[in-house]
């Protein structure tokens, strides 16, 4: 059986022109990405701003046509599909965006925003049926009683409630995969867990696969605890594996540095003196990526090989890592104060 969705050597290069007659500079947002998603699984895609994670989300949902490589949905090339197949793919792969306020039309009620897609795709036959279905959807995402929310406008709801509406809209079309791009980064910390738990429940009860795109390793670990994780740096995947294996023994020097920088809600650990395992703190510009391994200027273990040749993803232990010196990199640990 083929995977739900496969990315084969996908690259996405944007072009930026400076001035009217200026030369176009290529911006390689994704470079040679190989990744597949199985039905019903949760994959966390982690990286800092500018690493290409949002671009990957947009390629997966068909909003960007990749400049190189193939995107397969249930074994078929998305960009060679006929109209009916493409429409089926677009219905089955949904996107939930970061800014819930911008993603909802401020002039339309929740009922209007939620009933349009199901009427359009003929999942319900009448307005009356649509009303019942929207109530059911609001109930599923925990906006109960639905009558209290269905006639509201987006500005009358909190950020957490709007994010639930976006999830309701995403599941209304009975998708097989939802790409959630930083769905909780604009929500108060005290409410984040509830939204993440809702996504994990939708995954279990409806069997929908999720790609959770985030910069936050701690929430990635929370939602995808039994799933997989892929870590991106400057457009490339540098480490990939089950969340448990990746976090139990992170191998790529970049992932080790990233983990060391994550704030820990425990002063005994947070106050322990330590330095980030990095040579340089600033990320190089994606418009001018370093030669060889793009992490080499910041890496403590870099050698001449790293400056010249780019490593490829190779299995090491239980995970897949893209590093020439993976055997040399010491085990990652964290210090505590007594």
């Amino acid at each position: 059986m083929s995977s739900l969705l496969e990315l084969h050597n996908i690259s996405m290069v944007f072009e930026q022109k400076s001035g009217l007659f200026g030369k176009a500079t290529p911006i390689p947002a994704m470079v040679d990405v190989q990744l597949s998603f199985e039905p019903g699984e949760i994959v966390a895609l982690v990286g800092e701003s500018g690493c290409g994670k949002t671009t990957l989300g947009k390629v997966v949902t068909g909003l960007h046509k990749p400049t190189e490589g193939q995107l397969l949905y249930q074994g078929k090339d998305v960009w060679k599909m006929n109209k009916a197949e493409f429409s089926e793919y677009r219905r089955s792969v949904q996107l939930v965006q970061q800014d819930s306020y911008a993603a909802l039309n401020p002039m339309r009620t929740i009922f209007q925003s939620l009933s349009d897609p199901i009427l359009q795709h003929k999942l319900v036959r009448s307005r009356k049926e649509a009303y019942d279905r929207v109530c059911e959807l609001l109930d599923t995402v925990g906006l109960t009683p639905p009558e209290q929310y269905i006639e509201k406008y987006p500005h009358q709801m909190s950020g957490g409630q709007r994010q639930r509406v976006l999830l309701a809209r995403a599941i209304s079309l009975k998708p097989k995969l939802i790409v959630a791009d930083e769905p909780v980064s604009m929500i108060d910390v005290s409410l984040r867990m509830a939204i993440l738990r809702l996504m994990s429940n939708l995954n279990k009860s409806l069997g929908i696969a999720f790609i959770y795109i985030t910069h936050d390793l701690a929430t990635a670990r929370y939602i995808a605890q039994y799933g997989r994780m892929a870590v991106m740096y400057l457009g490339k995947i540098v480490e990939q594996g089950s969340v448990h294996d990746v976090l139990a023994a992170p191998k790529h020097p970049y992932l080790q540095a990233l983990l060391s920088a994550v704030p820990v809600p425990n002063p005994r650990i947070a106050k322990a003196k330590r330095e980030l395992p990095l040579k340089s703190l600033d990320m190089p510009s994606i418009m001018n990526p370093p030669s060889g391994c793009s992490f080499h200027p910041r890496c403590l273990y870099a050698s001449q090989t790293c400056e010249q040749t780019a490593p490829s993803l190779m299995p090491y232990g239980n995970t897949i890592v893209s590093c020439h010196h993976v055997e040399k990199v010491p085990q990652w640990t964290i210090a505590t104060v007594k």
């Binding site: 005290s190 701690a218 929430t219 929370y222 976090l247 820990v264 809600p265 425990n266």
Partner: peptide, 12 residues
Amino acid sequence: LIQAAPSILDDV
């Protein structure tokens, strides 16, 4: 607030 803060170390 402390319980709601996700961590990379503790039991999720």
